[in-house]
């Protein structure tokens, strides 16, 4: 057991009864370091979904904004042990984006501007549990937090909510993404503390 340092408080945080195990509450915005922040002008931004048959659905920034937007209020949990309660976002549900997608594959790789990837089960993205969001707290999502658009999959650890997302590719197997290849758990359920490989 680590020794407690008298008077050390650390970053502002509160006790909270219903956090997943091992998490602390923060008022800050937890960000995950993935390297340099890509700068993606919205005129160049695109979001695409590609299936095993080669079918590709593509949205420009304007086309994307013609889709129905939803307000999402949710808790988020970062594997670095921060949780933030009641965050508010605006974006398009993946149910909407997947409406015309025909696939028999069960796994998805999310790709980001800047080259990062994260793997997800299609099941984790549907039924009102995942969004592509472009606003945080009523403001356009700033690049440090994944703007212009990021994935939001709040029931999984936050690295699954890929920043700077540019597309999803269906895959037959649960091939691991960037953090998953490097040690993080392939699924990442905070309530089951799926932080690392072998847990």
């Amino acid at each position: 057991m680590a020794v407690i340092s008298r008077g050390f408080g650390g970053r502002a945080r509160r006790e909270a009864p219903d956090l997943p195990p091992g998490q602390y509450l923060t008022e800050d915005f937890p960000v995950l370091s993935a390297g340099p922040t890509p700068d993606v002008p919205t005129e160049e931004w695109q979001f695409a979904i590609r299936t095993e048959s080669g079918q590709t659905l593509r949205w420009s920034w304007d086309e994307f904004h013609a889709l129905p937007f939803e307000d999402v209020s949710t808790d988020i949990h970062c594997v670095t042990r921060w949780s933030k309660l009641g965050t508010s976002w605006r974006g398009v549900a993946l149910d909407t984006l997947f409406a015309d997608v025909e696939t028999s594959e069960e796994w998805v790789m999310a790709h980001s501007y800047g080259g990062y990837t994260t793997n997800l089960a299609l099941d984790d993205l549907l039924d009102g549990r995942a969004w592509v969001v472009t606003e945080f707290d009523g403001e356009p999502l700033d690049p440090e937090h994944g703007g212009p658009a990021r994935l939001l999959v709040p029931h999984l650890y936050f690295w699954k909510s890929a920043k700077w997302v540019r597309g999803l590719t269906m895959q037959a197997e649960d091939d691991p993404g960037f953090w998953e290849q490097n040690g993080y758990h392939t699924h990442g359920d905070p309530w089951r503390e799926e932080r690392y490989w072998g847990q």
Binding site: V31, L32, S33, A34, G35, P36, C78, T80, W82
Partner: peptide
Amino acid sequence: VIAHDGEFVAR
């Protein structure tokens, strides 16, 4: 190295 909150990427 880029570091954030216990995560490190060495390039």
